[in-house]
């Protein structure tokens, strides 16, 4: 049987994680092809609605921004941090698997960490049961 690759939407902040992904690329670090990257100005821009909507057509979501203290806008990721903590709790509460939606901080210098994270998230999503895309599939 042909294995169908699962899709993961990755919201990456322009200043750190997106540059980290870029570095992973130019450094030729390999990672699985699951990720569909969406560049956002800041992890603070990631409305929970984006995450919920992404799950309508993808099997997983990764959100990544700058490390606390490194935000290009000083505190965007710190405000987002509280929001994400609630989102994670909410999704778990309604019975969505822990690995389905994941969060991390990855800096522009961490190309290697980006590749490792992408691989880890991809393998976790692969091992989860088939996602029902909010009951529409």
């Amino acid at each position: 049987m042909k294995k169908v690759d699962k899709k993961i939407v990755a919201f990456l902040c322009n200043w750190c994680s997106y540059a980290g992904a870029d570095l992973a690329g130019v450094s030729r670090f390999q990672y699985p092809p699951h990720l569909r990257i969406i560049r956002v100005p800041c992890s603070g821009r990631v409305d929970p609605l984006f995450i919920f909507t992404a799950l309508k057509s993808a099997d997983g979501v990764l959100v990544s921004g700058c490390h606390p203290g490194d935000c290009h806008y000083t505190s965007g990721n710190l405000v987002a941090r509280r929001k994400f903590a609630l989102v994670k709790g909410l999704l778990e509460f309604i019975g969505i698997e822990d690995g389905r939606v994941q969060f991390d901080w990855i800096s522009a210098a961490e190309g290697n960490k980006f590749a490792q994270t992408a691989a880890k998230v991809a393998s976790e999503v692969d091992n989860l049961p088939q996602w029902d895309r909010w009951g529409e599939k």
């Binding site: 929970p48 609605l49 909507t53 309508k56 929001k83 989102v87 909410l90 309604i94 895309r133 529409e136």
Partner: peptide
Amino acid sequence: SWVGKTTGIGDNIIFHLTRAMHVAG
């Protein structure tokens, strides 16, 4: 259009989760 206008289960779930997040705190 941020969320579908249908009463399909997916649109309803997205609406309710987002609503809960918007009023959180």
